[in-house]
Design a protein around this nucleic acid. Sequence first.
DNA 1: CCCGTGATTCTCT
DNA 2: GAGAATCACGGGC
Length: 185
Amino acid sequence: MLETAPGLLNAVLRHGDVAVRLTEVEAYDGANDPGSHAFRGMTRRNAVMFGPPGHLYCYFTYGMHVCCNVVCGPVGTASAVLVRAGEVVDGIEIARERRPGAKDRDLARGPARLCRALGIELGHDGTDLVAGPVTLEPGESPADVSTGPRVGLRAAPDRPWRFWITDDPTVSAYRPAAPLRRGSR
DNA sequence: CCCGTGATTCTCT
DNA sequence: GAGAATCACGGGC
C-alpha cells in the first residue's frame, strides 16, 4: 500500500487527535527525477528519502512552510510521495485553532497547510509511520482518480505524477508553476 | 496580482 | 569559509 502514489489516496494520516484523509498526492522518483530533492544524491536533509519505506520525510521551504512526504521505495531508491492535500476527518476543532480564519475545507488544502493542521514539524522528519507519533492507516480505494502534471515544479513539469480524487473539494487549486521572481530571466 | 521568509546547497576562492 | 542562488507555498492586497 505504500508502494504507489495513488495507493495513498484515501489513506488517513494521523497525528495525535487530528487525522486527515488524503485526497491529493504527488510522486517523486528519487535520483531519476529532476524535480526531486534527491536528484543530486543524498544530502543531510533528504537522507530519510533514501531510507526504508513507511517513514515520513519533512522539510522546510520558502522560509515559512513545512511539507511532508511518505517514503515509499526500498532502501536506496529515494522515492517519495508528497502529500499535497486532504480532508480533516478527526480533531477538526484542533485543526481550526491551528489555522485561524481558514474555512473547514481549506484546513488541509495544500501541502504546508496540511502539515500545519496536523501539527507536523521538522522534528517529525524520519518518523516511522507505524510506530508514530505520526501514523498512516490505509483507506478504501477511491472510486475515481484523476492524474495530471505536478504543481509548482519548474523541473520536469510534464510528468503526470500528481494524483487526486476526482471532484473532491479539498484538492488544492492547480498552479502551473512557481514563477521565479528573483532574476528576471 | 505580488511579496515574505529562512534553511539548504552549490560554487568559487 | 563565505556568499549567492534556489525552493515541491501561502497569505495579503
